[in-house]
Amino acid sequence: MATVTMDMNVDTISRAHRSGQTALSRLACLLIQPLLSRVVRRIADRHPSLFARLGPHQSTDFLIDPVELPFALHLRPDPKALVLRAVPRAAAPQAGAIIRGRFMLLLELIDSQVDGDAAFFSRHLEVSGDAEAVVRLRNALDDVDGSVAEETAEMFGPPGRSVLTALRRAYPNQSQGHSVR
C-alpha cells in the first residue's frame, strides 16, 4: 500500500511545488486508482437516490482537492458513466467546480460529520467555479444515511478499518472544525 505523508502544519490552501512532486503524484495516482473505481461504484450502487439531487450537475466535472495529498480527485457523478479518478494537479481536467480543503475535512464533509457552511465560514474549505454544482453535491451527499468512509473501510475488512482509525487519529481535531490551519 502506498504511504502518503500528511504534513499537519501545511497551510490549508496553499502548497509548495516541490521537485519530484509530479513523479510522486503520478505514482500515487496509479496505486490508488483501482481503489477509487471500486469505492465509487459501491457508493453509487448503495445510494442511487443521491443522483436525483444532483439534477443537471450529474455531468459536471468536480475537482476535489485534498491540499496535503500529492494528487486531486476528478469526480463526474454521472450514473451512466461514473468517474472518480486520482489526477496529478498539473494534469487535472478543466473542472466545472473545485472543492478544496484538507483530506480528513473533505472525508468528514462527505459523512456529514462536519458542517460545510461552518467549514466555509472558518476558511478551512474553499470552493470555486459553479457554486450551484457544489451546493447540489453537498445536499446530495448530506441525504445519504450512514458513513461513506466506514462503508469504504468495510470493503477492505480489518485492514480498511485500521486505515480509517489511523486517519482519524492523525486528525484528532478535525471533527470540531478547529486547529487545522
Binding site: 474553499e126 470552493v127 470555486s128 459553479d130 457554486a131 450551484e132
Partner: peptide, 10 residues
C-alpha cells in the same frame, strides 16, 4: 442569493 449567481475568487 441563488447559488447559480454566486462566484468565489481566490
Amino acid at each position: 442569493s441563488p447559488a447559480s449567481d454566486v462566484e468565489y475568487t481566490r
